[in-house]
């Protein structure tokens, strides 16, 4: 009996309780990024570090690098994006996602928010009443600063109305957001700064 060769299947069955699953680097990074995005959208207004765990000590924390991490976590062949930055668009395209006009794009990447970008943002997809989830997700470069008493968030995910560190975002953005969002229609936003993310779902009420 002992001299008989052990088949691969038997060997697997014998060893499987001792096999610890391991993640590929890509899986670990995309999971970590997704977890940050999930928390950011669950708790709007709070700032979450993208550079925890695997990426501690990662040198380049520029907005474009952070956006490319978000793209890797969310984009693939089934999705579409819009991006004005050529280098970033090339990286996002490598996920297999299609570069489309802003009106058709599911994910919109804007490393910087200026008036010319804002005018194009007015054309984004806000979904329809049957499928409001088709509303776009906008990933915007931002600059977090100290909270002042200018911008106040309230709504789901926020226990008590809170002031947030987004004083440098153009006031026209807030006006456009208010104009476009007719809940449940609308778009969801992630503000990205150097290594940090803040979520702003369409349910959040912003008072300025």
């Amino acid at each position: 009996m002992l001299n008989q060769p052990v088949s691969q299947w038997k060997l697997f069955k014998m060893l499987s309780p001792f096999i610890i699953p391991t993640r590929s680097k890509l899986e670990a990074e995309t999971h970590e990024t997704f977890e940050v995005l999930r928390r950011a959208l669950s708790f709007p207004g709070r700032i979450w570090p993208l550079s925890q765990g695997l990426r501690i000590g990662y040198g380049d924390m520029s907005i474009r690098t952070c956006m490319s991490w978000i793209g890797s976590a969310l984009l693939d062949l089934e999705t579409s994006f819009y991006c004005v930055d050529d280098a970033l668009a090339k990286h996002l395209g490598a996920t297999g996602a299609q570069h489309k006009p802003i009106a058709d794009a599911e994910y919109i990447f804007l490393p910087s928010l200026d008036l010319s970008n804002l005018s194009t943002l007015a054309w984004l997809n806000v979904g329809d009443l049957a499928y409001p989830d088709r509303g776009a997700s906008v990933i915007v470069g931002a600059d977090f600063d100290w909270p002042s008493r200018h911008i106040r968030f309230s709504g789901p995910g926020i226990a008590k109305p809170q002031f947030v560190m987004l004083n440098n975002v153009l006031s026209e953005f807030w006006a456009l957001r208010e104009k476009l969002i007719r809940y449940p229609l609308g778009f969801d936003t992630f503000f990205v700064s150097d290594g940090f993310v803040m979520g702003l779902p369409r349910t959040t009420e912003v008072k300025i």
Binding site: R38, L41, D133, P156, P201, T203
Partner: peptide, 8 residues
């Protein structure tokens, strides 16, 4: 899931 969180 992110969309589900955004539209409770």
């Amino acid at each position: 899931m992110l969309k589900a969180i955004a539209i409770p």
